[in-house]
Structure formats: C-alpha cells, structure tokens
Design a protein around this nucleic acid. Sequence first.
DNA 1: ACTAACCTCC
DNA 2: GGAGGTTAGT
Lengths: 322, 322
Amino acid sequence: MLELRLVQGSLLKKVLESVKDLVNDANFDCSATGFSLQAMDSSHVALVALLLRSEGFEHYRCDRNLSMGMNLNNMAKMLKCAGNDDIVTIKADDGGDTVTFMFESPTQDKIADFEMKLMDIDSEHLGIPEAEFQAIVRMPSAEFARICKDLSSIGDTVVISVTKEGVKFSTRGDIGTANIVCRQNTTVDKPEDATVIEMQEPVSLTFALRYMNSFTKATPLSNQVTISLSSELPVVVEYKVAEMGYIRFYLAPKLEEDDIENQAEARPEVNKKPKEEPIVDAKPISAIKPKLEVKAEDENKPQIESTTAVGSKEEIDLMDDE
Amino acid sequence: MLELRLVQGSLLKKVLESVKDLVNDANFDCSATGFSLQAMDSSHVALVALLLRSEGFEHYRCDRNLSMGMNLNNMAKMLKCAGNDDIVTIKADDGGDTVTFMFESPTQDKIADFEMKLMDIDSEHLGIPEAEFQAIVRMPSAEFARICKDLSSIGDTVVISVTKEGVKFSTRGDIGTANIVCRQNTTVDKPEDATVIEMQEPVSLTFALRYMNSFTKATPLSNQVTISLSSELPVVVEYKVAEMGYIRFYLAPKLEEDDIENQAEARPEVNKKPKEEPIVDAKPISAIKPKLEVKAEDENKPQIESTTAVGSKEEIDLMDDE
DNA sequence: ACTAACCTCC
DNA sequence: GGAGGTTAGT
C-alpha cells in the first residue's frame, strides 16, 4: 500500500512538465526515503534524476518499496487536470498494476481521481558518481534558460567556460558567433538573482544545446540553477524542488575537435563537427564513477527494491546523497 | 571604425522585427547624420525607409561613411538575444566584413557579443519624393493595425478614403463588404489616442492589405501612425522612433477598376481584380517625384558614401528630410 | 506541413 | 487566468 499526499501539487505538475519531453517511460521508485526517478532520455545521451523526499509530503505511507513504471506523457496529462492549488495524492496497491492520482481542490469542493495503468519498464539504474567538480556555477534559472535559448538560434552546441571572472557561454553557427559572459555577482537585492561561481580550476566543456534546452524546462521549479562542471565528466544541471529534493540532469560533454583529431580512427571528412557522446556508450557513468562506495549513513536507510529490476548497492547513491 | 551605442536597445529590436518580414537583405548606411536603411520589399512593391539619427545614440562614432549589407533575418535573430533593457552597441571596422553587436545588461553582469558576416548587396537607392499630400491621417497605431487585420479577414484590398468627416477603410470580399469609419477626434485624455485628419482635398486610394498588415508590424514602435495620401502617389505609413527618427513604409496604390477599364489594352477577363502596382515598374518613385531638388540645408550635411553603390544626389533626400 | 511556444484578448 | 490566434521552428 502506497499513499503519498502532497499539499503543493503544482510541484509534481511542474516536475512532469520538465521531464516528459526528455523521457517517455520511466520507473518511479518509492521507498521510505522518498519518491524518486532515474532515467535516460530516449536517445540515451542524457540522464534525469529526481528525488522528492518523504519529509516533503504531508502524509507519506510506503509499506513496501515499489517501482512503478509510468508513461510520463500520460502521467503529465493526468496531472494537468489538477488545479495549481490542488492537493495531490498518489495511491497504489502493492500487488496492483495501476496508480491513482487524487486531486482535492483547496476548498474540498472538488475531488477528482485519475487511475492510470502501470507499465513494465526495464530500468537501467545507473550508479551516479558523487563527484568533486572543478567548477560549480549557481545562477538565476531564467537567465540560464534565456542564454540556452538565445544561443540555440545561432548554433547547435554551447561551450561553457568557467574562469575566476565568470562563466562564458559561446556558440558558433552559419550566421555568426556569439559569446555571453556572466560575471559573479552576489551583491543583489534578492538572493535568487545572485550568480555565484565556485571554481577550483578553470574548465571549458562543450554540450549539445538541444539537451540544455530540454533541461531548462525545469526552470519553473526553482529560481536558481546549479551547473557543475568537470573535464571528462557529465555536467550536472540541478534545480531544487522546494523543501523536497531536486531534479538533476546529466549530460556528457561532446569531444572537442582537438580530442576527435587525436583519436586513432581514420576519418576522411574534414571540418567534422564534434560528435554526440552518449553517456552510456562512450562514457558510461558507472565507468567514470569515482571509487566511492556506500556511505555509512546508507546502512540504516531502506534500499530500493524494484519490482522490475533488482537494485544494486550502487543505485542507492542516487537517493541518499545530499 | 564604427561604434554606435544605443541605450534603449529594444528600439533596434523592434525596428528589425518590423522590417525583417518585408525585406530579406538590405544595406544599413551609416554616416554622421545617422544610421539608416532604405530597401524595397522582396517583391519590389513596397519600400521601407528607416532613419535613426546620430543624436539619438548615447555614443555615435562613424569615422567614414559605411554601407553594411546585412541579412535582416539573421540580424533579427541576434538582436533577439538582447534583453529589452540591454544597451546595444553596433561595431564595425572600416575594412572589415563583419559587424559586431554588443549587449550589456543594465547591471553590467552580463555582456554578450555577437558577430555577423556582412554581405554585398546591390543597393537600389531610390530618390524618395518629399511630396505634398492631399490628406494626412494621424491615428492610434494599434487602431490602424486592428483595422487592417480585421479587414483582411474579409477582403484582400482596402480602400482608404479621406473626407472632412473622417477616414474610411473599406473592403469587399466573397463573404461580404466592410466599412470602418474613424472620425477626427482630438478631445481625448491622452494625446496618443487622438485621430487627426489634415485634408487639403478628399482622396480615395486602394491598397493591398497584405502589405498594410506587414507595415503594422511596426506598431510596437509608436503609439501613433501617420498615413499620408495623394492620388497617384504611394501612401506613406510612418511610425516615429522615439527621439531618434522614423520608419516609413511606401506602397503604390492599386489602379481602381475604372482606371483599368480605361486602359487601352484589351483584357478579355471579366471581374478582373485590381492588379498590383509595383513601385518601380509601373510607377517608379523617381518618375512621380515632384520637381524638388536638393534643399539648401542639404549642402552642409555629409552625404552617404556607399561602399557598394555610389549615391546620387537624390538619395540624400531620404536622410535629410523632416 | 505540422507542432509548439508566445502573446493578446476575453 | 484561460483560450485562441499567430508565428516561428522542426
């Protein structure tokens, strides 16, 4: 038996709006820790990790760990039927093959329930490294979204370069080039307008703007976004979900042209563009995971027991960090 | 060396949004007088003339007159990347084949630079007559836009008739007819709501709504629009650009059906529609230009020295009038 | 040619 | 705040 009551139902609506374009089907994992999801995008290039901690729910009952496969588009359709002020309750029976979403209007005048069939989904639970980053940029999420949108009208990829002075977003396309520099700025009226750069070492990485623009669909969730960068590692674009957790997007950097040229393969084309780097194929996240084993605090936390895929020790990292 | 700093960058954004649908490629002419553009639309039926006077810029440096050929769509794409409050600087080197747009956020936290390749464009600089008009209508630009949009759902052409009582916009289509009369009205709370009619002589002219609707893309630039009419002359639809100049659209009237019937050519078709009157082909503006030579005040103003086309005396009229 | 985002009107 | 239209992008 599962029953999760979320007073701020709009959070779940926003979460789904931000994920449904990237991922078609995914398993929601439910344990005493919280309600979480981890999935690769359909082209296996990007990865999404969501965590909504149990403490964020008004009522959280999860008798037995459950992994519920859902079509996110359909789930989003149902959640769209909830008012923004509605209280949302997610219900499922342990044995059942359906999930029920209940929407209560704030005045209790309207109560709706939507039942959705669950699906069997092969979960590709990956261990996600809790890495040290060379640079972490925190900036207003709307500004980041605007930059990604603007640059994608000029080019397909963005080079994100962090130095002490600030973070630079650059692109190049047929019609010209573009560079946008954001300086660190902590002396702002509202803290959500701050741009903070924590840099251990300068770093410069290239990413596909198409995915960045998908990630920024999560902008309504938080005023701030955190971009964590390290050479060779996937970038982490994180939006906090108020009082509850986070949604994180991972994207492997494209190889710089230099790197491609250094590769042994004979490639006859000249002026070849940097190629997409699928996270799983070229640089599986598990392969670049630092030698970080289960932390002590994990011991007394329940593990995910997936109904469709058995979780390994590694998989727990996703839920227990932070 | 060219460096034009425009504090209200949104003006340039709006200017490009209003021109890019009409004209694909055009030369921007830069002289001590200001930053200007004159171009025919792609089908050579309408003409756009833009002037942003140097005094309107916070900083205006133009060592040598320059004519810069730009793809207006690409330029618009780049300007879209500027925030509405951004300060826009246009930079170009005298010999160079690129132009750079710099956008500074009001707080200086974000600085963007966009570089764009220039093009070689055959400029068809036409002399534009400084005509006397039989009627000049000044009215709220939004109202004019609304009328053109509404009428174009009924018919393809609009007959604009000015009498002492007011201005009438009429159309006729398969589904019926429409007449919209706006009376002169100067007793309004806000001056921008006024409708003012200066009429020497009643006039009635027919225009293609398709172009009128293109012109009204400039509506965001000004609360008021001025429509200047004379028989046989192209209409001038003018929007002032605050503190800086204007954007003017010229469109030759269609021949009335009567006129067509009076023409010698044997045309077998019955119910023939009024034909498009290209400004250059049927009624070249130079041909209908009143015998108005260069005015005295022109003498001490610098002339445009185009790098791709040498300007004639006539061409200067565009920039020096008003 | 279709879809999605934006903007305006109701 | 919702709906519809328009426009831009795929």
